[in-house]
Simulated scan of single mutants.
Amino acid sequence: EDFVREIRRDGIGALGEIGQSPNSRELSPLERKMFRAVGKTHLQTNLPIFTHNPYGTGPNVPRQAGLLQLDAFEAVGVKPDRVAIGHVCCLDDSQADMMKQIAKRGAYVGFDRMANTHPAPPPGSPPPRNGQVHDISDEQRVKEILEFIGAGYEKQLLLADDNTLQPLQIGEAINQLEKVQWLTGESSAKIKSMIFRDMGTGRTVSRFVPKLRKAGVKEKTLHTILYDNPRRFLAFEPKNS
């Protein structure tokens, strides 16, 4: 009820990201409670839901983690086509098997860490600390998307950048240089624009999409992924009771 009141008061347009702890085997009791609450909130508001997945955060995370999140929402009556399972791009899934299983059930698949390129460590290395995510390479991401599209699921793919700390840290350093007048305001703005285009919030479109295009993905399919899918996922008819 608190969630619903806040949504109607503030005009919130989506529920997320609803997450799971790093390197965890399953949802904790508290996380399950939150998933149920969000699912019930969706039933009263019709808002779309997107999740945070622990893929890439350690060896304890099961490959079916995304399906288990979907189970939690379906258990309270949420239809899968109102859910986007996030961070699936952090799973090394060369045949896109898990992506296909999620999509087969009707949910959207979030390839939503395109701004992040933290490579996995060599085999035998300790698990990531403090929830740091190890990302698969762009080349692997392209292969998985081609498999996914080839299976006919292009209408259930969402691309996004996620948050990225490194460009923010660099941006803050540039701000400091501007304060001590080592950089002009104009130069500072140009450098930060370049950083966020190539490393941050614009990387999906500026760097990754051209790789899909080079791999043979047609413009019509790219339009579906970049424009039609997010519009369809985010569109909803509000419920007032």
Rank of each mutant, 00 (worst) to 15 (best):
D2V: 11
F3V: 01
I12D: 05
G13M: 08
L15A: 07
G16N: 04
G19C: 01
S21K: 05
P29L: 07
P29K: 06
E31A: 15
R32E: 12
M34P: 00
M34L: 09
M34G: 07
T41Q: 12
I49N: 08
H52N: 03
T57G: 03
R63S: 09
Q64V: 09
L70I: 11
D71I: 14
F73Y: 15
F73K: 12
V83D: 04
A84F: 00
A84T: 10
I85F: 04
H87L: 04
H87V: 05
S94T: 10
S94M: 02
S94F: 01
M99P: 05
Q101I: 01
Q101V: 02
R105H: 09
R113G: 07
M114S: 11
P119E: 10
P121M: 05
P126S: 08
P128D: 02
G131Q: 00
D138T: 07
D138V: 04
E139N: 07
E147H: 14
E147T: 03
Y153E: 01
Q156V: 04
L157H: 03
T164H: 12
Q166N: 10
L168A: 13
Q169L: 15
I170M: 06
I174E: 06
E178P: 07
T184S: 15
S188R: 13
D198G: 05
T201Y: 14
G202L: 05
R203H: 05
R207Q: 14
F208V: 07
K211A: 03
K214L: 11
V217K: 02
T221P: 13
L222Y: 06
H223Q: 14
H223L: 07
T224F: 02
N229D: 01
R232K: 14
F233L: 09
E237A: 14
E237Y: 02
S241H: 14
